[in-house]
Design a protein around this nucleic acid. Structure first.
Lengths: 194, 194
DNA sequence: GTCTATAATTCGATAGAC
DNA sequence: GTCTATCGAATTATAGAC
């Protein structure tokens, strides 16, 4: 009954981490439906029932695996005219080494819960960053949505569909092309219409 | 054995069409895995075995349901500076009334065959349109890829994830914001880099 | 903590009556 | 052409031995 030792690393933490790592890979590669608990357990070299024991259900496992922090840099420190460039480069860097976003995109396509999570991630993190820059509140949400549309379109064509011109392009080339788009969505004048 | 009547409408054509319509709806709403033959058959008010009889397999049904023509307008007739606007408006119009693209996006996220089909659709139709405009062959493929990235990002955020600022925006407002992006990808100067 | 065995569903596909 | 019945496989999830 000794529970006084706060958060002492449990013996099973390594197993939990291994499950989570395998889950992220499988969800990223196959999406929610095709990624089976059996396959994830096999990757993690443990028994499928362990996954249920630790995470309760497949949904619970996904919820744990789909935590995703965009790790946006502090934009206030960036010269205003370089915001687009910094953001595009940041996203490409962030994704090349972490499959979680691919998992989220694949899963959000068919799973309402994952779509909800994706809305939360981009609304809160990108939306909040846009607001923090002092953007006009009347257009801030729309600007954040437009940025998200181009950023997710970039990820979708490059990592999911693997459209050759996008998948094979050097990151810096994509930065050069796409940065002005993000820059305009962020700081450009709102169109007269509507 | 009378097979001389060429392409006389068969009695089962209505059933085939009903199946296809239901399949498109289900694939669009649920993606490939979650859309079951049983559910599609129930929607079409026919027996599940009919689907197999007409389309051979679930893959065959999807292949028939995922035919998709972007129906790009003839761009040569459009004033050069209005190309972006015309294209964005066309895509929004094209999608609002046809769920096939949503089905394709949902399915391409996890199904390699559907991803291949999506590569084909956008490479051939958008790529070809860009080339037909007389674009420099050295950058035409990249420009087509970038246009695809923004167009699919628009569709993904508006119809799949339903990010509020994108899902609720009036079409003309999206046209006003996004058209300059497409215009620049299509006719703007290539960046100096790489 | 770990594993075996299996329950309870659900699916794609097939066989065959009518 | 249409339907009933069902097979065989795969899945999530649970129960319980060790």
């Amino acid at each position: 009954m000794d529970m006084t030792a706060a958060s002492r690393p449990r013996r099973s933490d390594a197993t939990r981490a291994a499950i989570l790592r395998a889950a992220r890979e499988r969800f990223a590669a196959d999406g929610y439906d095709r990624a089976t608990i059996r396959a994830i357990a096999a990757d993690a070299r443990i028994d499928p029932s362990m996954v249920m024991r630790y995470y309760g259900s497949k949904e619970g496992l996904f919820a744990a695996a789909a935590e995703f922090d965009l790790r946006l840099p502090e934009l206030a420190a960036v010269p205003a005219e370089q915001l687009g460039e910094v953001l595009v480069r940041h996203f490409l860097d962030r994704w090349e080494g972490d499959e979680t976003l691919a998992a989220l995109i694949r899963t959000a396509s068919t799973n309402p819960g994952a779509a909800e999570r994706m809305r939360g991630i981009f609304a809160e993190q990108i939306g909040a960053a846009v607001v923090r820059l002092g953007t006009d509140p009347a257009t801030a949400a729309r600007r954040a949505g437009l940025i998200t549309s181009q950023i997710l379109g970039l990820a979708f064509t490059r990592y999911i569909v693997r459209l050759p011109p996008m998948a094979e392009a050097a990151p810096e080339e994509l930065v050069a092309w796409v940065a002005p788009t993000i820059q305009r969505y962020l700081t450009g004048p709102a169109p007269a219409s509507a």
